[in-house]
Nucleic acid binder design. Structure first.
Lengths: 263, 263
DNA sequence: CGTAGTGTTGAATTGAATCAAGTGTCGTGG
DNA sequence: CCACGACACTTGATTCAATTCAACACTACG
């Protein structure tokens, strides 16, 4: 049995749905990294920067966006202390951001999925505070920041949208603050899974069944737990019948009970 | 003996220096809450929003800023779920932001000192995610956000400045994330004191001797510790000769050793 | 002067970390 | 296509840092 149900979810979940659809061109559909796909035809547009821009505004944004070559698993988008030039929108795949402390240990500061914006850790000090690594084969749109600033001067909607995106990042970080300062291991992991679930749903993927592209160690570093504790809590939630866990494949069997764990 | 050295630091530290000086008007000097003090004459201007604006730009900013009545200790500036209208700059005093969870427990999400910007927790969802309470008699400048957005359209420097401020907030929140996910109680408290110390220095106050305006419980809620642990760590650091602690008065005796604790 | 809020300290408890051993999985190159 | 090695993961036993529970002291304020 290769997975929870005896058929291969990995392939079906991962590949198909995240492709940026490009109208009726079937070739583009199968190639989510196609650099020709514009914001206006990108199926992630309503999760991403262009939201609340009109057609004309979107095409102006389109012009400053660079669609780079895709990154392989393990490749870095940027590293700690790199000069800040751009923010990035995830087109497909996923990323982790992390910092290395003095004795070389890493701590994961975030995970990023399609439609989410990356790189705002560099805006304050004009230097990236995190490193960002692809967790799987992934592609991104690069938005040079000085050009984004210039365009925001001309498009009030874009300025407003970017203030909102940064505001949401602040809100999200403060939620993690309270999570880490008062939740138990089980509550942290439940909350983490619910966050992933909601974000998969945003991408039109199943909120009940998905793949983790990060390791138990990554999750532990993010949640302030050891990888052993993460593993034990997964086992515990499975024993209670709330989850089914098979390696990186997660099925949330009792969504309500899981939600009740974090109130 | 009323404090560490037998004289009253509380009064001298707290009152005098934080006043927004107003050139050569001695009356304004003694009244930090004077609503007439403009950005251009405010001694906090170079910590605050106006930095990198020229005289003309500052006076445009000045026009949209409302200087409200001061808040007494324990009063709220805004509460969780209040509609978002403005961000605020702390003029004098200090504030804590906090959230209440389902069972009525509070968790502190931040402390704010003169020159720092407050209220960005509302930008994303147009609704405040935190409550904010004055920790002492305090005053603020209110900056209506829609007007700030409008003015940012006209003043590229202001837009850029506000992007930076929000970027720094994100960076700060991520630093707390790594603090909470991997530091011991002692490391957390050391890091907290060093942060306060640096921020007092920014306000032209002593980085070695200052007053805590928050309770041990507030600090614990912020750092993810119980108030008993906070108290024990203070005692421990005092026993090691790194600090002198007398109620809310802190003296950092060995700054180097304290810094070494967090590497 | 009394009381509520704040802070300290001790003893017992506990949740998660650490240490350790072993299994499972995946990608690579022969 | 299989074997190998490197990672990734699980589970158990033990330890430990911080919490919890409890008693008491201090301070500040009406």
């Amino acid at each position: 049995m290769s997975n929870l149900n005896g058929n291969n979810v990995s392939a079906s979940i991962a590949a198909e749905k995240l492709a940026s659809s490009s109208g009726n061109n079937p070739l583009l559909r199968t190639c989510p990294q196609n650099p020709a796909v514009s914001c206006s035809s990108c199926r992630l547009a309503d999760l991403c920067l262009p939201i609340s821009l009109n057609q004309n505004e979107i095409s102006q944004l389109d012009e400053i966006i660079e669609r780079n070559r895709p990154l392989k698993k393990g490749e870095h988008l940027y590293r700690q202390r790199d000069p800040f030039r751009s923010v990035f929108a995830v087109r497909s795949g996923s990323f982790k951001s992390y910092v290395l402390n003095a004795d070389g240990q890493s701590r994961v500061t975030g995970f990023y999925m399609p439609g989410e914006i990356l790189g705002m850790d560099g805006i304050g000090k004009r230097e990236h505070m995190n490193s960002v690594m692809a967790l799987e084969h992934s592609s991104i749109c690069e938005i040079p920041f000085t050009q984004l600033e210039k365009l925001s001067q001309q498009l009030p909607n874009l300025q407003s949208r970017f203030f909102s995106i940064m505001g949401n990042e602040i809100t999200k970080d403060q939620e993690i603050h309270t999570l880490l300062s008062s939740y138990s291991a089980e509550e942290r992991l439940a909350s983490f899974l619910l966050s992933l679930s909601a974000r998969y749903a945003r991408c039109q993927l199943s909120p009940e069944r998905f793949l983790l592209h990060m390791t138990r160690g990554d999750i532990g570093e993010y949640l302030g737990l050891t990888l052993e504790t993460v593993s034990r809590v997964f086992s515990g939630l499975q024993k209670k019948g709330i989850l089914r866990v098979k390696n990186r494949e997660i099925e949330i069997v009792e969504m309500g009970t899981l939600k009740a764990l974090v109130q």
